[in-house]
C-alpha cells in the first residue's frame, strides 16, 4: 500500500520530468481475475516425477522430442524451450533422502506458463502477439503477428516464453493451457495424463479453495486426493505432507492461474518471490503517466514548434 504509493509518486515525477508537464495519471492497478478464469493446481508433494505430463504435452501440441543426452534414448530437454512447453525439474539437497524436505531432501517441480492474471508478456509485446482470453484468462501466442523481438522471453518473470533458436525462421513457444483441447471441452493434456492428481484442473476459484483446504489439513492425517478435476470420482487416499504454508500464485505479481503447493520453499523450485504489484502495472503506469492521451508529447511538440519558429525567423536557419 505505502509501497504502491511511493512507486506511483516516483513514476509520476519521472513522467512529468520527462514530458516537462505535470498532470500525473492514475496508477494503473493490477488487472483483475477474468470472470471464468480456468485454473490449474500443481501439488509438488503428489508429483512422482514420472513425466507422463511431458509426454502428453508433446503429443497434444505436436512437439518433437529433444535430447540433451549423448545417446538419445528419451526425450530429455534441459528446460522449456522452442520444442518443450512443459518440464519436470528436480530440486535436490545433500543426500536427497526424503521427498519434499528442504535439507537432505528432494522435490519435483513442473514448470510451464503460469497464465498470469496480469501478464508481463502481454504488456511488453509490441504487436499484441500475446493475448489473454477475456473470459477464461488463457494466455495465447499468435505467431502471425509476432516479429520475434524476444521481449517476452526477456521480461517474463517466470522465464517461460522461449524462442526457437534452432530454427532459422523460428517462433516463440510456450504453454497455452491446451487451449485447443479446452475448446473441445477436454482437459489439458498434462492434467489428463497425471496419474496422481498432482496436476489438477478446474476454475481458478476452485483450485484456490482446494489449495487452502490442503494447507488446513494436519500433516500425518490422510486425505482423499482428487485426480484430474475436483468432481472426478477416481480419487485416492494419501498421507498429508508438511506443506509450505503458502499457495504460490495466489498473489505473486498480481496472481497466476496456475498455482503451486510444495513441501520445500518455492525459491528452491525456480519460483521466485515476487511482489504483489505486477511489473506490468508498474511499467504501464510510467508509460501512461508520460504518454497519457499523447497530451504531454503533443504539448511539448507545440511548444518547441513555437519557440523554434520564432528563433529561426530571428536568427536564420543555421
Amino acid at each position: 500500500m505505502s509501497i504502491k504509493r511511493r512507486d506511483f509518486l516516483k513514476a509520476a515525477v519521472t513522467g512529468s520530468a520527462v514530458a516537462a508537464l505535470p498532470g500525473p495519471a492514475e496508477a494503473r492497478p493490477n488487472l483483475e481475475v477474468p470472470p471464468n478464469a480456468v485454473g490449474m493446481l500443481y501439488d509438488a508433494t503428489l508429483c512422482i516425477g514420472c513425466k507422463a505430463c511431458m509426454v502428453g504435452c508433446k503429443e497434444a501440441n505436436e512437439m518433437p522430442v529433444e535430447s540433451s543426452d549423448v545417446s538419445p534414448i528419451w526425450d530429455t530437454p534441459m528446460d522449456t524451450s522452442g520444442k518443450t512447453k512443459n518440464i519436470i525439474k528436480v530440486y535436490t539437497d545433500g543426500t536427497a533422502e526424503v521427498k519434499d524436505r528442504e535439507t537432505d531432501g528432494f522435490s519435483f517441480v513442473k514448470r510451464h506458463c503460469m497464465h498470469c492474471v496480469d501478464p508481463g508478456c502481454i504488456s511488453v509485446c509490441p504487436v499484441t502477439a500475446m493475448r489473454k482470453d477475456p473470459d477464461t484468462g488463457v494466455v495465447t501466442y499468435h505467431e502471425e503477428a509476432c516479429i520475434g523481438c524476444r521481449y517476452c522471453v526477456w521480461a517474463c518473470p517466470y522465464n517461460i516464453p522461449k524462442w526457437d533458436f534452432e530454427d532459422a525462421f523460428g517462433k516463440i513457444n510456450k504453454c497455452e493451457f491446451c487451449n485447443h483441447l479446452l475448446a473441445e471441452g477436454k482437459l489439458p493434456a498434462c492434467v489428463d495424463r497425471c496419474p496422481t492428481g498432482a496436476s489438477l484442473f478446474g476454475t481458478r476459484e476452485e483450485m484456490l479453495e482446494e489449495a487452502h483446504r490442503r494447507l488446513a489439513l494436519e500433516p500425518g492425517d490422510t486425505y482423499d486426493y482428487p485426480r484430474n478435476t475436483l468432481d472426478d470420482p477416481n480419487r485416492h487416499e494419501a498421507v498429508v505432507p508438511h506443506y509450505v504454508n503458502k499457495v504460490y500464485g495466489e498473489t505473486q505479481g498480481g496472481g497466476t492461474q496456475v498455482m503451486v503447493l510444495a513441501g520445500v520453499p518455492f525459491g528452491k523450485l525456480d519460483l521466485p518471490e515476487i511482489a504483489e504489484r505486477s511489473f506490468a502495472s508498474v511499467s504501464e503506469t510510467i508509460q501512461h503517466t508520460v504518454y497519457k492521451g499523447l497530451i504531454a508529447p503533443l504539448a511539448l511538440l507545440g511548444g518547441l514548434m513555437f519557440i523554434s519558429r520564432r528563433n529561426i525567423e530571428k536568427g536564420g536557419t543555421e
Partner: peptide, 28 residues
C-alpha cells in the same frame, strides 16, 4: 537484423496490432 521474424516486421505498423502499453512499440 535482430528481430527473429524479420519478414513480419510490418506487423508493427498494422493498427489492429498496436499495443500502447508496450515500451518496445513506442521505441520502434
Amino acid at each position: 537484423v535482430d528481430i527473429g521474424r524479420w519478414w513480419n516486421f510490418y506487423q508493427i505498423m498494422l493498427p489492429w496490432n498496436i499495443n500502447l502499453n508496450s515500451v518496445m512499440f513506442e521505441i520502434a
